[in-house]
Amino acid sequence: MLTPGGLETTAGPLVRVPTRWTWRDYLGAMAMRWGIGRDRYTVPPGLYAVGTPGEASPLVATANYKLSFDHLRRALAGLDAWVMVLDTKGINVWCAAGKGTFGTEEVVRRLAAVAAGRAVKHSTLILPQLGGPGVSAHEVRRQSGFKVVYGPVRAADLPAFLRAGMRATPAMRRVTFTLRERLAVVPVEAVQRFVPALVTMLLFFLAAGIGRNGYRVAMEQWPSLAVAVWANFLAGVVLTPMLLPALPGRAFAVKGAAMGLLTGVALWWLGAYRPVEGAAVALLSIAVCSFLGLMFTGCTPYTSPSGVRREMPWALRLQIAGAVAGLALWFVARFV
């Protein structure tokens, strides 16, 4: 990953990092999308060189999650810069800032540890904007003498930011949640929800034998049960994030419930259920998708804790009530 090509700099010999991704970097980025081996995807903290940096070159900080580091070094292609990697325990900038590991203390400590004052003469440190929740710029200045400038949200905007004399356009300062970005968080969610969905399906298979027809008939119901479970999985884990802005309501439990209603109606229609059974499937779909919607709040970059705290109590009660009613109806349908 890091070419060993040592570089003699004003800060001593440093590792010069390539700005192009190799197939291993792409493979690693892909694995991260699916949450595979994330705990070990790290870069050693310290100072690195991009190009041939000198005393006047910009000094940019990032987290030691390798994907954060990779995005930064790729963005710096063709430039000369110093990259200071903080020890954030392998967590990305924003999440680490929220936990305080990408924080004032670590910034000050790392500046001293890498002798940043010897590398550059300008005393300006560029932090990613999303490091803001963990770092107090004026405290860093007081404790280290380095003046903090917050760079753009996305590393890709850094060259334009630097060209403009370290000024960000309003768009560079905004966090977005585009379709592409929403889809990016889906795989990790899907992996996490897969086993619970599988267990749910198996429990329904077992429970299907309860009733006046016993297991002889139950086996015939397995395909439609499997379809119902995985349709809800698809709806709650993939479609809700995808269609998020188009779903009605502001509360995530409401958005999820709308998705669940759609799923339930579709299942009822396709499955040609009897009314009791159809109502059970619809109620269960609404409850499950609403719950999954609420759980999705953690994956979005715009939900406030106050907001989640407001919707969660009533949402959970209704979801539990809906699930209980749905299950009761489903069992009643076994006997009528």
């Binding site: 107090s136 710029a137 953690g298 715009y302 804790p305 106050s306 907001g307």
Partner: peptide, 22 residues
């Protein structure tokens, strides 16, 4: 997220910060 309050040099901002995650 709390970034504004933490970075305000004169303590003019106040927010109960945290992560909006159910």
């Amino acid at each position: 997220c709390g970034a504004c309050a933490l970075n305000c040099p004169v303590d003019a901002l106040d927010v109960e910060s945290g992560v909006g995650c159910a």
